[in-house]
């Protein structure tokens, strides 16, 4: 209420127009291309690892689990040595969406909040970034499950 007394909605709209003229547009196509390359390379790496484990005699399920574990380890290690944030900085969603991005979100939180102690630092803030993904991932899966149960 009081805000609109000082600066009118009209003034805010006019200002927003000036800002939109000056503000750079996000480079959507460039970002999509980079995400495709980086995400694609991570998946390609995953495929190599999967094939490797299968050739060593694991069945598909076992090999898939081992592949996830390997990728998570690699991403965690690269986060620890300070490389993974550069990968996602360049690749955007290509570095964030694969399982490696999930590992990065947990390890970076663990590193960041280590100074506040193992319980209230690492313990309570480990899922700061990953938590919402888990919560809404599970909720969505649950909703889809209900839908599937009733409509098939």
């Amino acid at each position: 209420m009081s805000d609109s007394m000082v600066i009118s909605e009209k003034q805010k709209r006019e200002y927003a127009e000036i800002v939109n003229q000056i503000k750079p547009k996000p480079r959507v196509w460039c970002n999509i291309f980079r995400a495709f390359i980086v995400g694609g390379l991570i998946c390609l790496l995953g495929q190599f690892i999967l094939s490797f484990f299968q050739n060593r005699g694991l069945n598909v399920n076992e090999a898939a689990a081992a592949t996830s574990a390997t990728l998570v380890f690699l991403a965690a290690f690269l986060t620890g040595v300070g490389v993974y944030d550069e990968v996602s900085r360049f690749g955007g969603a290509g570095g964030i969406v694969p399982i490696t991005g999930f590992a990065n979100s947990m390890v970076s939180s663990a590193l960041e909040y280590r100074a506040e102690g193992l319980v209230f630092g690492v313990g309570s803030r480990l899922f700061t970034i990953a938590g919402p993904v888990l919560v809404w991932g599970i909720v969505t899966a649950w909703a889809v499950g209900i839908f599937y149960y009733f409509f098939t």
């Binding site: 503000k23 750079p24 996000p26 970002n31 986060t79 300070g82 993974y84 944030d85 550069e86 990968v87 996602s88 900085r89 955007g92 570095g95 964030i96 991005g101 990065n104 979100s105 390890v107 970076s108 939180s109 590193l111 960041e112 909040y113 700061t128 970034i129």
Partner: peptide, 17 residues
Amino acid sequence: ERQYRFPTELGLQRPMT
């Protein structure tokens, strides 16, 4: 960064602004 935004080692893309 850690107070206002995200962990420093978290990979993300920042807008040009």
